[in-house]
Design a binder for these strands. Sequence first.
DNA 1: TTAAACTTTCAATTATTTCTGAAAGAAAAA
DNA 2: TTTTTCTTTCAGAAATAATTGAAAGTTTAA
Lengths: 165, 165
Amino acid sequence: MNLTETQQKFVQTWGTLGNNWGINKTMAQVHALLLISERALSTEEMMDSLQISRGNANMNARALVDWGLVTKEMVSGDRRDFYSAKKDIWVIARQIAKQRRQRELEPVISALAELRTEMPKDSAHAEMLKRVNDIQDFSIKVDKMLEKFEKSDENWFYKTLLKMM
Amino acid sequence: MNLTETQQKFVQTWGTLGNNWGINKTMAQVHALLLISERALSTEEMMDSLQISRGNANMNARALVDWGLVTKEMVSGDRRDFYSAKKDIWVIARQIAKQRRQRELEPVISALAELRTEMPKDSAHAEMLKRVNDIQDFSIKVDKMLEKFEKSDENWFYKTLLKMM
DNA sequence: TTAAACTTTCAATTATTTCTGAAAGAAAAA
DNA sequence: TTTTTCTTTCAGAAATAATTGAAAGTTTAA
């Protein structure tokens, strides 16, 4: 897979976006590459296209599988692993929402809940108590909203959007 | 401001969360500190509480002002700057949404739009064209949703949440 | 078996980000 | 003016994260 200039620019853009959102740049680039490829790619092809090492390609491809954004595919008569990205943007968005909720939001909700039980009810902690309560309530709301989104279909999103406006 | 163990834990938790979301850990910690303080704090107090250098305290406090999460306050008869965080979680959430939209989402939307105009209409770019179109459409939807959220009040959010469920 | 073709791991290296602290800058007080 | 008190900047140091590449591990074929 030899990238045209335009394709490289896309891969680059996606990498920058990912990076801004706290995602490894290479991981985002591998994802971009797979997104615009019409067939599944081997590790070798990813290494070539993105000029990265074998270890890096392998690690990031598997991280993407972990995130549920990419699937590993076997081609009969070929011993190599091939990777292919899910192409539906709604599926992708939902998957990312799901993973971030699990990995980043839920731990905070638990940590805050724990903090709440441990918190002395004295005046030194009065301000903190307010903040922790507020943030906890808010986080749970966001959590529920994301959960709903994860289970939704595209159509639901459109309808909700309409209702919102 | 000498932190109790519980307060330290909160600051720590907030720092970890921020870090996960691609935000500088210290910046998140300074924010947490200001969130649970009932009065505005001086640079010196932030340095003490978080065990960080003057430069670091100053830089991150000002970054928070940049993000619109913190305001600089002057106390008459005192030459020092004091910093105080906005306390309302809805205001905070909206402000973060606004900033991330501006800083991270809009650049991607422009980059994709530009890409779209430059993209050759040949078969080598067919797959990419589909992806770029889909992502672009989706990004604009999210952009609009965030814009709506930014201008909303707490009440609107609750109502929308209800409608969604 | 043994060899071949691939994948995975991980210690060492490289790159990036963050932090420090001292120096320079700015504003008020003496 | 000069001094004092505080803020800001920024080059270098430290910490963290990402990447490499070679060796070890696996699986299939010969």
